[in-house]
Write a protein that binds this DNA or RNA. Structure first.
Length: 198
DNA sequence: AATTAGATGTTCT
DNA sequence: GAACATCTAATTA
């Protein structure tokens, strides 16, 4: 069962981010379906969060998707090389998003291996924001602004995860965000090996 | 094991 | 022109 619109449209991004841990992320590209369990995420808020691209009402071509309704995909290019996949949350006009940073492959790992040009299945296959998109075949041109209730990319419920199994810590790569860099808005599965960084 | 350099496009100064 | 929600391979210890 796909997660419904109401899941994404809730007000508290941090809560949505935490609940995305353990969910299953699907992509279907040219008929090939690949699936991974979400093991690591970060929350970004459009208000009072200097780390967010759309902080303080900043509206550009790139950030426009985040102002749309919850449940859309925000994919952007980072450092000119890596594509990053985010889930847009909150209602229209409020630019919040959750960055998916790592997944554990559960279906189509052979396809992921060939997309990543690897021959071994380990955490380097899909743990890290720039490489999980490679593994799942997510790109800016194909997936930015797509609806996660559609048939190309979507999220379904998975195993139940309790709060004690989730670690909350600071986000990565956002030192420029001053005091907001200290927010414990990164979440990951405590016992999982599929984590970009402990 | 830890650090460094290089790749490279979009956005903002 | 600088900074950036990063990854990899090469170098140093």
């Amino acid at each position: 069962m796909k997660l419904n619109r109401g899941f994404y449209e809730r007000e508290d991004v941090v809560q949505v981010a935490k609940e995305l841990i353990g969910k299953r992320l699907f992509t279907r590209i040219d008929g090939d379906i690949t699936v991974g369990i979400i093991t690591e995420v970060e929350a970004y808020s459009g208000r009072n969060d200097k780390a967010c691209h759309a902080n303080d009402g900043l509206r550009t071509k790139r950030t426009e998707v985040m102002y749309g309704q919850g449940g859309m995909a925000y994919v952007y290019l980072c450092y000119g090389i890596h594509q990053m996949f985010n889930v847009v949350t909150n209602k229209e006009g409020l630019a919040d998003a959750v960055l998916v940073r790592a997944i554990q492959p559960i279906k189509g790992s052979n396809i992921m291996l060939s997309r990543r040009k690897k021959d071994k299945i380990d955490y380097k296959l899909s743990s890290g924001p720039g490489i999980l998109t490679q593994a799942l075949g997510i790109t800016v041109v194909d997936h930015n602004t797509l609806d996660l209730l559609g048939d190309n990319i979507w999220i379904e419920a998975g195993e139940k995860v309790s709060d004690e199994d989730i670690v909350a810590t600071t986000r990565i790569g956002i030192d420029y965000a001053e005091e907001d860099a200290l927010k414990p808005w990164r979440f990951y599965l405590k016992e999982s090996k599929w984590i970009s960084k402990k």
